[in-house]
């Protein structure tokens, strides 16, 4: 696939690509066995695997509070939520595998620090209120993106997204409910909620990615209908939806420039610190190292377990073969 750039497009490729574009323009779903441009395949593998890695790494900041959840109901809900994320990781790795890559290969790239995952998970969760803020804001931002992806042109990805979206909206409500209890609770609880909002607001806005002008791959993804809305459109939708929710909680959004713009019919908001975004993506966020180390540790400590399972399965297969020979 690396040779795609260097290849001169043949007339046959040009014809196939035109037909492909036409097919996608007609709102048809691309399936694994269909012909697709090499770059389309490559883009999807990158995007889906990053998404899968995000689910798996995203388990860590929330798993941090399972042991300390303040009620049994919250403990069960949080545990179930993090389990759902592991499940999402599985669907997504499977969707990526339909494009001809191997899950282990993708995982190796993550562990080697070569593959990206959503930078939001490189922020720490020092407080219980972070479980609320993550559900409300981070899952909220993810949903905005994922609702769009339910209509993405690649069939297996779109179908995985439909399933994931249902669970994510449940998580978001759960997160918002945590925030509701905190913001209507004791002064200490309310302070906890405000502090979490202060820390998660800007990183959540960064989840939509760079401004459209700075996002060169977006246009091609939109043409292929992998993506259907631009980063800035999605970000604006998220802000418009979230500001009234914060007001209902009685919490203030940490942006002095945030105000309703009657003429635009949208909220205006202050500048995003893209330098911070770049630094966190580049590996310099507060938890990048810890997150990757946790994944590597789990993988290394799990190696003998995976080997044992394989060895046992092989022995069993041999035994079955011997038994049938005897029979």
């Amino acid at each position: 696939m690396n040779s795609i750039k260097n290849q001169e497009p043949t007339s046959e490729t040009i014809r196939l690509e035109a037909r492909f574009q036409n097919y996608v323009d007609g709102e048809n779903k691309v399936e694994p066995k269909d012909w697709m441009p090499g770059a389309y395949r490559k883009t999807l593998i990158r995007q889906i695997s990053q998404h899968a890695h995000s689910e798996v790494v995203g388990m860590l900041p929330e798993a941090n509070w399972i042991g300390r959840a303040p009620s049994l109901r919250r403990k069960v809900a949080l545990l179930a939520k993090v389990q759902d994320e592991a499940g999402h990781g599985l669907y997504l790795y499977s969707a990526a595998e339909t494009l001809g890559v191997d899950r282990r290969e993708l995982l190796e790239e993550l562990l080697a620090g070569k593959a990206k995952y959503s930078s939001i998970f490189n922020y720490p969760t020092p407080s219980w209120a972070d479980m609320g803020a993550i559900g409300w804001l981070v899952d909220g931002a993810a949903i905005a993106n994922q609702v769009m992806l339910c209509r993405t042109s690649y069939g297996p990805y779109a179908r995985a997204m439909v399933k994931i979206c249902k669970e994510e909206s449940f998580h978001q409500r759960q997160g918002y409910e945590i925030m509701l209890y905190l913001s209507k609770g004791t002064p200490a609880q309310k302070a906890m909620a405000q502090d979490a909002l202060n820390r998660w607001w800007w990183p959540s806005l960064m989840m939509f990615g760079p401004n459209d002008a700075e996002s060169p791959n977006s246009a091609q993804s939109m043409r292929w209908k992998i993506k259907r809305k631009s980063n800035d459109e999605l970000r604006q939708e998220f802000i418009d939806k979230t500001v009234p929710q914060a007001e209902f909680l009685g919490l203030s959004i940490p942006d002095p420039e945030l105000r309703w713009n009657e003429a635009r019919g949208h909220y205006d908001f202050g500048p995003i610190n893209w330098e911070e975004f770049k630094q966190v993506v580049a590996g310099n966020g507060p938890c990048n190292r810890e997150r990757l180390e946790a994944r590597r540790k789990a993988d290394e400590e799990g190696r003998w377990v995976r080997e044992a399972a394989n060895a046992y399965a092989q022995k069993q297969a041999q035994r079955r073969a011997q038994t049938s020979e005897v029979a």
């Binding site: 798993a63 403990k75 545990l79 592991a86 599985l90 789990a298 377990v305 995976r306």
Partner: peptide, 22 residues
């Protein structure tokens, strides 16, 4: 058991052990 959450030897077993914890 819930301490295994996010740290299992492989994703499928992570899910299975969380099930038991739940």
């Amino acid at each position: 058991l819930s301490e295994w959450c996010g740290h299992g030897p492989v994703l499928e077993q992570d899910i299975a052990i969380i099930n038991t914890a739940l």
